[in-house]
Design a protein around this nucleic acid. Structure first.
Lengths: 133, 133
DNA sequence: CCTTGACCTCAAGTCGACTTGAGGTTCTAC
DNA sequence: GTAGAACCTCAAGTCGACTTGAGGTCAAGG
């Protein structure tokens, strides 16, 4: 057990690419926890970098910081449900995203002057009747 | 030319499922334009439903309302560039989304007690060295 | 005539995730 | 011993996309 290799908040910021102010904010939310304070200054275990990276990833997954809190809480038994729900979300998002990419790719080459009146978009709308007027 | 079939803001709201307050906000931004005012009240062409639906779609594409404004501006020659840029974004997003779905699906079945220490996530991190500590 | 409901404007509030600023302490190097 | 960097707290500001609230107008129905 090394003992003396703890990181200042600045070191964590540099290692992870996350701003110091953001790290303090995560601390405030309890997402990361300093192992110690030296003259008032936070000292983090190097492990915290993993946690920070996890937070960033999870955000990109579409989790809010509050949800990340649940994921990180080892007394929380229901993270599996949260993951399952989020997975459904993501799959749904993917379907939408695909259709949008498809649509935009067509729009790009359709030669219309004004996007809003592009027949490809009309067509697409027609395929999604829930959005019809 | 029918002439008298214009819609009140409430009718547009009902037809599109978008809140009245949001429609007024779109008007304020110039994204939708009433064809008339009757005793101060907005009257919209039924076409506006198409525009509103387009706005919602574009938002789901990841366009901001400001960008939507560019898309809807028929004097704007550069919407093709905007679409191309956004298309790149979306494709990048899709790659990320896919890897996240993959990862979450594994996490879901890995049996770990605490997500943050799940080896699958560590593995995934290892594949993205830019995030290493 | 009077109420009800849909509409109006304008200002201010909300939410999440931070950032910025003021004012102060502490560590490091010379 | 002193300058400058890095840290601290706490309050307030920012951004986008709306929503909410106060206070008021207007047409239709009983």
């Amino acid at each position: 057990m090394p003992g003396g290799a703890d990181l200042s908040i600045g070191a964590v910021a540099e290692a992870t690419g996350v701003a110091v102010s953001a790290l303090r904010y995560y601390d405030e939310l309890g997402l990361i926890v300093p192992v110690d304070r030296v003259a008032g200054q936070r000292r983090f275990s190097p492990d915290v970098c993993g946690t920070v990276n996890f937070i960033r990833r999870a955000q990109r997954f579409g989790f809010s910081l509050e949800e990340v809190g649940v994921l990180l809480d080892d007394t929380e038994r229901d993270w599996v449900g949260l993951v399952a729900a989020k997975l459904n979300d993501l799959r749904q998002q993917r379907v939408e995203l695909d259709s949008m990419i498809h649509l935009l790719a067509e729009v790009q080459t359709c030669g219309c002057e004004v996007v809003a009146s592009c027949p490809r978009i009309e067509t697409d709308l027609a395929e999604h009747p829930e959005t019809a007027c």
